[in-house]
Amino acid sequence: MPMNIAKLTRLPPVEQGFLLDAKLPVISLAIEVSPLKMQAREIGSAAVHVHPRGQLIYASSGMMRVICSRDVWVVPPSQAVWVPPNQEHEVYFPGDTALRSLFVDPSAVTGLPLQCTVLKVAPLLRELILRAVQIGNSYAPDGAEWRVMQVLLDELRIAEATPLRLPMARDERVMRVIDALLKSPGDNRGLDAWGKIAGASSRTLARLFVSETGLTFGGWRKRLLLHKALDRLDRGEQVTGIAFDLGYQSLSAFIEMFRKELGVSPRRYARVNRSITN
């Protein structure tokens, strides 16, 4: 996702992802991130990086943007991103965030996704993540705290994936359209109009969207609107204003899209997120 990387405030490097020890299947990290206190518009991770431990990136409050390869996710407190071992990734924080990361030893990742995946954080999983942070990183093998980590890993293995992936493209024609929509997601122009901007026919552009992103143009734009809606709901904005700003002609059409994608209405989603955060 286009952004001025040079102007981002960087977090210090994280060492936990490189500590290999099968006797510590889960290592935790808790950081309070505040762009406002650091006088930054947005804070980025140390750099695009990889580490031998897998990582569950979770914010108990606040919103994150996670990039794996060319896929982008906006992640609220009801979800977490699983990053498998040795997968390049980067994390950005547009606002105050309570980051709670778990680093999983390669010996314990069996049964977890083989690619970056957004997982739903059920109440039990949330409590186990917070408990892992409380336990810290000096627990004994086969003790009570070690068993908590095993239950946590079991819950991760059965966590449900969510459709929050926003794939980018490599073709310049597709990226011209994507860049414009990222700046103005409420732009309702059709493929014929976008084709003139991209320098391709509407048929070619439609084909390129599928081959480059795995989504149709309409599917990709709907996913972008969902990202933007989640971000604004997390900021406490009203559903009606979000719907019309994103180009929907009616509130009911926006609610229907949201419910089809995430299974709940935007108001219900916002209430659940607030209850999880509080």
Rank of each mutant, 00 (worst) to 15 (best):
D71V: 14
G195K: 02
E32M: 03
I67L: 13
S28V: 02
A6V: 09
R274N: 01
G219C: 00
N86S: 07
V174P: 02
A46K: 09
K183W: 02
I178Y: 01
E127K: 13
S250D: 10
F209Q: 05
P52A: 10
I31N: 05
Q39D: 11
L224V: 01
Q150C: 07
G136F: 06
V74M: 09
Q238P: 02
E145T: 10
A98H: 13
L246M: 13
P167S: 11
P13K: 13
P12H: 12
L233P: 01
D187C: 06
D154N: 09
E32V: 06
D96H: 13
S184I: 01
T213Y: 05
G263I: 04
M175V: 03
P76H: 11
T97D: 11
S107W: 03
V264W: 00
K23E: 14
R147A: 14
A46E: 15
D142T: 14
S250P: 05
R221M: 00
E127Y: 07
K37T: 07
Q134Y: 08
A200M: 04
W82M: 02
Q134N: 12
V50H: 10
L191F: 03
P12V: 09
R10H: 14
R126N: 11
R131K: 14
M64I: 09
P266Y: 00
F254A: 09
Q39K: 13
P106K: 05
V239S: 11
R176D: 00
I276C: 01
I31W: 03
V177W: 01
S78W: 03
A206W: 07
R53L: 02
C68A: 15
E145D: 15
G236W: 14
G190W: 05
E127N: 13
V74W: 11
S60M: 04
R176F: 01
P2S: 04
P123N: 12
D71E: 15
I158F: 06
S275A: 06
N137K: 05
R173L: 00
S34N: 12
F258Q: 06
L102C: 08
F209S: 04
V81E: 02
D21Y: 08
V148F: 12
L20M: 10
K120R: 15
F217T: 00
L99V: 13
H49F: 11
T9L: 14
H227D: 11
L19N: 02
E261C: 02
S250R: 15
P52W: 10
K120D: 15
D96L: 12
V33G: 03
R70P: 06
D154V: 03
S61G: 08
G247S: 14
D187R: 06
S252G: 07
S61I: 02
L114G: 14
Q134G: 07
G62E: 06
L20C: 07
A253N: 12
E172C: 00
S45Q: 10
G247M: 12
A40T: 06
